[in-house]
Deep mutational scan, measured.
Amino acid sequence: MFYPNSPQTSPQLTQIPYGQQYAMMQRQIQQPYHPFATTEPQARLYPYHYQGPIQQEQGGFITQQSTAASPQYVQMRVTPVDQSIMSGYPNQTANGSSSSSFNYNIHPQQQQQQQQQQQQLRHHAMPVGSVPLQDDRYRKQLIVNYLAPDVTSTDLHELFSRFGELDGARIIYDKQTNMSKGYGFVYFCHAEDAKEAVERMSGYEFHGKWLKVGYSTNPLNIVPSNSSPYVHAGSRGAAG
């Protein structure tokens, strides 16, 4: 039997160049792979992502010199942007860049009308829970959420009447099932009393439920100042 490094198959040491006398086997001759043993700084910083320098080929596509990437890492192929796409944008300079302001050559009167329309939209648009300043009635009506099913309009009136005089209180019921929808409205005579009720009743436990109280901004629920107070009856038909 002959071994790869046996004296019968191995040459004389004098015939082997210096430095390879003890590297006779194939696994010894093959050098191990060192990912950080390279002179390129990109490979030292990113050993798993770097795959060699990027070269520009004919046709405008950018390719990489090395083989496919590892399945664990996804390499994105980048193509140059066609400058003709950006030619339609206004205020574009000769080098292809555009300024931040756009001039669509709008007539001054049209621009003024658009600004007025935007101001009107901001004036009428009102986020949930906010209180408008032009109508004091919005500051007097509250919406009470997360009410228990057994709470009546009379219970709601008695709960909030300790903060001040009320114009009314009612629970909203479903017309088909005649069941409470879980929320109601309270109408105060003074805005200061309503503000105190919002601050003190939010998070209050009532009939096993934690109440959420806020201003009601729905104009359909506003009680006119010259109208008669609501009837605080315990029956659902009268309260709904």
Rank of each mutant, 00 (worst) to 15 (best):
F2M: 01
F2N: 14
F2R: 05
P4G: 02
N5C: 01
S6G: 12
P7M: 00
P7V: 09
S10P: 05
Q12I: 01
L13C: 10
T14Q: 01
Q15K: 08
I16D: 10
P17F: 15
Q20E: 02
Q20N: 11
Y22F: 12
Y22T: 04
A23L: 10
Q26T: 15
R27E: 10
R27M: 15
R27T: 09
Q28W: 15
Q28H: 06
Q30P: 06
Q31W: 15
Q31I: 11
Y33V: 13
Y33A: 03
H34M: 15
F36W: 04
F36E: 07
A37Q: 03
T39Y: 13
E40K: 01
E40N: 03
P41Y: 07
P41A: 13
Q42E: 08
Q42T: 07
Q42I: 10
R44I: 12
R44N: 04
Y46V: 06
Y46G: 07
Y48F: 08
Y48I: 09
Y48K: 04
H49Q: 13
H49W: 09
P53Y: 04
I54N: 10
Q55C: 05
Q55H: 13
Q58M: 11
G59H: 14
G59C: 14
F61G: 04
I62K: 14
I62W: 15
Q64W: 10
Q64V: 12
Q65T: 02
P71Y: 07
Q72G: 10
V74S: 07
M76Q: 01
T79N: 03
V81E: 01
D82E: 09
Q83Y: 14
S84F: 15
I85K: 14
I85N: 04
S87M: 02
S87F: 11
G88N: 13
Y89V: 06
Y89F: 14
P90R: 08
N91K: 07
T93I: 04
A94S: 03
N95H: 14
S98N: 03
S99H: 02
S99R: 05
S101R: 02
F102R: 08
Y104P: 12
N105P: 03
N105I: 07
I106D: 13
H107M: 01
H107T: 08
P108A: 06
P108Y: 10
Q109V: 02
Q109D: 15
Q114S: 07
Q115A: 11
Q117L: 10
Q118V: 09
Q118W: 13
Q119T: 02
Q120E: 10
L121G: 05
L121Q: 12
H124L: 09
A125W: 05
A125P: 10
A125G: 03
M126I: 04
M126P: 09
G129P: 12
G129N: 07
P132E: 14
Q134T: 14
Q134D: 03
D135W: 15
R137H: 01
R137G: 09
Y138N: 13
R139T: 01
K140T: 13
Q141N: 03
L142A: 04
V144Y: 15
L147G: 05
P149Q: 07
V151Q: 04
T152H: 04
T152N: 11
T152S: 04
D155G: 04
E158W: 14
F160C: 08
S161R: 12
R162L: 10
G164H: 09
G164E: 03
G164S: 09
G164C: 04
E165S: 11
G168W: 01
G168L: 04
R170Q: 00
R170N: 01
I171P: 04
I171F: 15
I171G: 13
I171A: 01
D174V: 11
M179W: 11
G184L: 10
F188E: 15
C189P: 02
H190R: 10
A191D: 11
A191Q: 04
A191S: 03
E192R: 01
A194D: 10
E196N: 13
E196K: 14
V198R: 10
E199P: 14
E199Y: 02
S202Q: 13
G203L: 05
Y204N: 01
E205V: 02
G208N: 14
G208W: 05
V213H: 11
G214S: 07
G214T: 05
Y215N: 07
S216P: 00
S216F: 11
L220H: 09
L220D: 02
N221M: 06
N221W: 13
I222L: 11
I222R: 10
V223L: 04
S225Y: 08
N226I: 13
S227P: 06
S228G: 05
P229D: 13
Y230G: 12
V231R: 11
V231S: 13
V231K: 11
H232T: 04
H232E: 13
H232M: 10
A233F: 01
G237M: 00
A239E: 00
A239F: 11
G240I: 13
